[in-house]
Design a protein around this nucleic acid. Structure first.
Lengths: 351, 351
DNA sequence: ATGAAAGCGCTAACAC
DNA sequence: GTGTTAGCGCTTTCAT
């Protein structure tokens, strides 16, 4: 690390111009200035010269209205809160990116907060977002109960996404996981009848439950009877994926023959272990929920259930928008159908 | 896609309780309530019973102070703006994640905005953040000139990161790119003397300039004379990486023997092309600026210059914090030293 | 030990 | 057509 010292001085904090300032300089009242600056000159029949004068002053002084003052009396903040476990997870990064774009295009600002899969941290960040008067909340929650969000949803629109609590009535947008995982697993299980492991995160949250249910269903459909030892739980940190896989290898004295990994983050850990232990050329049959563009370039061929993050984000946004506009929306629970992405030799022909 | 309709009704918009409400319910004045809720009870010698009464009411009603009202008279918003090209780029996602944590731990909220590498969009999002009164701005800019930021920095602290304009005086935090790229390239060039291509983004922005300079220096040190045709420019979108690489292959009628790719995003495109065209097993020598955890699991071995995003984020945060607290800071330009990550057969022994 | 009042920057209802 | 005014929810100085 090195530094370079520049003559960069202390910030002067030039005070920004306010609407009163503009009004004064333009020789009009605050309200007139306000109307003009909000583009309501027509509606309030402001004369063209007046309008132009105000606009000119504003432009000249680089007037930037204060959202805080604005929010204070319209009781909207033009912000949307997004709560995700981690932004480094590719899926969440992609969703965040999409949502940021959608918000921006709609004159809103996205506030992203991370929970690190930690429920008490989740409570904290959600409170923080509420203090900031977010107009709506989109949450990939790590909680086991929706109680907190049910309460919050009495104050402001809440949409759960990616994960959801059992039987929740709250609006949700998720990818269908049971059928898709079952399809993935059953095809593979046809050729992998003697062992087929499952690596999941926290057992009680919906991604794990649904993906596990799909895995079990898949085995059943393939006529493979499940050995309970095949199921391993951890949490959705990559390190947990590493750990679970390491222990599995230790237990077996070799890598498993077939493995379903419940998420992209866990797969990160599995792949790290495999590369560290020269297992990338072994003939393990890997499959997972969640796709990643780099999987195409791996020597191990991973078959996946690929969620469409763009679609996910879009539905979240439109649902929360409707809710914010108090539009009656018919369906508040939306299940997207993910696609299967086949890469292994046997299946790569399948489109 | 499927829907489920629930009995979920319209949001009632229960109005949240304000400090006046609390005051009234507790039978005290607004100011007293305010003092208590800000933890200034000692300082203002509020009696214990009064304090407890206020606190009790607040807790009971789940009082959430409005940041907007607060910001309005303390003229701070407790938010930090972060401007990045794209969040799906792993490096930026990692930085964002780190910064979000740092902000949260320091009672601030991070506002992330994306530019999609587009300068006019950059101007827009920056203005938007300023309207929201961000207390500071951390920017990975796609601009060619620092003029805009020089002006802004008169109003609020600005730190440039990852990228910087030539000779800018503004505070910056970047990874040193010339020496590190030179080191990477010169080692490889020792065994790849007859051709060594360079794939970069926009030619005039600092990441491209510095990484190119390093590449040139590396070739020179290895005694390899540069063929100008080896240098290819595009932009930092993955699709541009794909495109440039495709054209290169078309031009040569085969993949290049050695290639330096200027960023992770570009490499994404290169790898996509390679996997689509069964080139992953070819003996191309790939190296790049920016690392990715999945590179460990690829069959092509990519040697990289690995930036430490945590360190980058940390320095950005501490620098902007100092600036916000108007602390005189000696060094406003910070150059971090990245590490080389060797994966190719020849070098993987190098630690 | 507590309260009254002013004001942060803006919008919107209503006057003129 | 344009100005006056009353808040939005909070902090802070100054009285009491």
């Amino acid at each position: 690390m090195s530094f370079r010292t520049t003559e960069y001085g202390a910030v002067k904090k030039t005070k920004r111009i306010t609407i009163s300032g503009i009004a004064e300089l333009a020789g009009v009242s605050k309200s007139t200035a306000s109307q003009v600056l909000n583009g309501h000159s027509k509606k309030f029949r402001i004369s063209d010269p007046t309008r132009d004068r105000v606009l000119a002053v504003a432009a000249e002084h680089h007037y930037q209205p204060s959202i805080h003052a604005r929010s204070l009396n319209v009781t909207r903040s033009f912000t949307l809160g997004l709560v995700v476990p981690e932004m480094t997870n590719y899926g969440f990064a992609a969703c965040s990116n999409e949502l940021e774009t959608l918000c921006r295009e709609n004159g809103m600002q996205l506030l992203i907060a991370c929970t690190d899969e930690n429920t008490s941290q989740e409570t904290m960040v959600v409170n923080n977002l509420i203090q900031r008067q977010v107009d709506g909340l989109i949450v990939a929650s790590s909680m086991l109960s929706d109680a907190e969000y049910v309460k919050i949803s009495q104050q402001l629109p809440v949409v759960l996404f990616d994960r959801h609590m059992q039987d929740t009535q709250l609006p949700i947008v998720v990818c269908e996981a049971i059928e898709s995982s079952a399809e993935l697993v059953s095809r593979i299980a046809q050729t992998q009848r003697d062992e087929f492991y499952f690596l999941g995160g926290q057992p009680r949250i919906s991604p794990t439950r649904d993906r596990l249910a799909g895995y079990q269903l898949g085995l059943q459909r393939a006529g493979v009877s499940l050995d309970p030892d095949w199921i391993v739980y951890g949490n959705y940190h990559p390190s947990s994926g590493y750990e679970m896989f390491a222990q599995l290898c230790a237990r077996l004295g070799r890598p498993p023959k077939a493995l379903f990994v419940a998420s992209c983050g866990l797969m990160e850990g599995v792949l790290r272990y495999m590369s560290q232990h020269q297992l990338l050329e072994s003939d393990i049959h890997l499959c997972s929920f969640d796709d990643h563009y780099l999987y195409d370039s791996l020597s191990v061929k991973i078959d996946t259930v690929a969620q469409d993050c763009g679609e996910l984000a879009m539905h979240c946004f439109s649902m929360i928008s409707d809710l914010m506009n108090e539009q009656p929306i018919a369906q508040t629970q939306c299940f997207l159908t993910p696609k299967l992405h086949w890469r292994s030799r046997h299946f790569s022909q399948i489109k």
